[in-house]
Amino acid sequence: MAFQYVLDQFVSLFVGGLVFGSVYALIALGYTMVYGVLQLINFAHSEVFMFGTFATVWALWLVGADATTAGVALVASLAVAMLIAMITSGGVALLLERVAYRPLLNRGAPRLIALISAIGASFVLSELMGLRGALASALGVDDVLGRYVARSRENLGLPTDRTFTVQFEVLGYGVTNKDIIIVLAALLMMIAADQFIRRTRLGRGIRAVAQDPESASLMGVNSTRVIQLTFLIGGLLAGAAATLYMLQVGLTRYNAGFLLGVKAFTAAVLGGIGNLRGALVGGLVLGVAESLGSGLFGSEWRHVVAFVLLVVILLFRPTGLLGESLGKARA
């Protein structure tokens, strides 16, 4: 126990937690939206995120960014990388819906079957990435793809420079441009998603299907489209989270999604699964709690702190912090 240490380093730990919590929150949105519409926990969402992290690195390679890239060129490359990561993750999410869910839902399979299918899809996607070198050499294209498939089970690092400049100081802790970018970008995207669901015609469709799928389809809402759209939005946000995560952490691996997925799902439950704003609150609370908990008890207690917090909050508020489903969200 190190209360004095936590007090001294409060800002540093708090900002660190806020930054990582923003990433949790963006991923959590994907879980919460799919749950809101389908009452299904999409366990493969973590792999959608993982593909985004790889897309970020590959995109940076493609545009030729390296450790010497700086200034406007760096910002532009990162923006392109984020766009490509969002498209990739969105694409993977759509593919997932098409292959792993729609055939089951069309046949009226119970939710539990879809859950198993999700876990299976998660393994398949993760191993596809981990075995991409073996796949490429089996297809005879490993020479063409070169470093994109080399050492496919190893860490892959962000190629750009990761020294960040301090923008301003809060009580002795230098807040860097990276911290600001990650938190702001995550907030902006979540606000955009929230407003999209609340204000647009397509968003109304999503809420309608979440509230009552049968009535919604009687009223002319194409529920297949809505489900696709839900997966797509979740995927896009996971892709954005992936680029922000790479900025913060610096490297990724084929199984990087697993832990993040568990945590983001926890954040979604913590905030109230099915509730968009709950995902935001849950993500930030979880990130900050983990960071402060690590400071207080040591980094090895990080996951213990996270899950004890979850249990305690669910004991008092079984539906999570905000506890309101997507369907009941008022326009």
Partner: peptide, 19 residues
């Protein structure tokens, strides 16, 4: 400080080192 194999975010450890 002790971290866990498989972890990716070492923010609290970095804070501790700097402090």
């Amino acid at each position: 400080e002790t971290i866990q194999v498989g972890d990716t975010d070492f923010g609290p450890a970095v804070t501790a080192v700097n402090a």
